[in-house]
Amino acid sequence: MSARPLPRWKTMALHAGLSVLCVATLYPVLWVVKMALSPTQSLSLSVSPFPEAVTLDHFRDVVGATDAQGRWLFGRQLLASLVVSGATTLVGLSLAVTAAYALSRYRFPGKASGMQLLLVTQMFPGTLMLVPLYSILQALGLIDTWGGLVLVYATTSLPFCVWMLKGYFDTIPRELEEAATMDGASPWQTFTKVVLPLARPALAVTALFSFMTAWNEFILAATLLNDAARFTLPVALQRFVGEYKTEWGHFAAGALIVSAPVMALFFALQKYLVGGLTAGAVKG
């Protein structure tokens, strides 16, 4: 466990163990890949995670889907998902960053109870808020719009984002800001030029979480959106899994397409994950 290299046999054993664990972890994913590439729509009883015959038909069906008016549904739904998730990340992050900074640095009335309230909101099951939420969005004229979804996603992911960012801001020494202020920077400049660049790992992780929340959500999206051309991808995916009949091939192909961007983001941001998630708790 120290910095010295391990004995050879131990290294071998470690690699063997880790490989087995990786295979066990990836096995279900390979199974989905197999279903997506196999020509049938049903499950098949075989242990091998590799397909017997390979076809891209399921991908072609999912990607090429059009509706009665000949609109390219998949393209529009992908766009919908990107727009909604991107906007959620932007709105959520800008709201969370300013709020978290204020909570970390300034003293103002209602601060302590506000923090408590943020935690408390996480404990009420979300599905039950669906009924009142529908009426509120109707009052705001936001049913069947992307804007309504963005607002709801951004605000529901806020408590978690604010808590995480505040924890990280707490670890950044105040001396840096004081020095900037001495040099004549305004509070806003200090915040954007000094604090935010330092908080990059936490920002990356928070952005990733906001994006994932919006990208994966489907209950609310399925309830609020009434036009197939404006559906987000998870809502479209839901159609392949019926109560009486599941088109496993289409579902698997769709699932891979939906998961791919999130995985790519994960890999791109993974060097920030470790630091961004824990720094607040460790040093604070």
């Binding site: 300013t98 204020a102 309230l117 605000t155 806020l158």
Partner: peptide, 14 residues
């Protein structure tokens, strides 16, 4: 700084 986030949370969460 907290205002916008608080307003959003108030209307759509609280």
């Amino acid at each position: 700084y907290v205002g916008p986030a608080a307003a959003g949370i108030l209307v759509l969460v609280i």
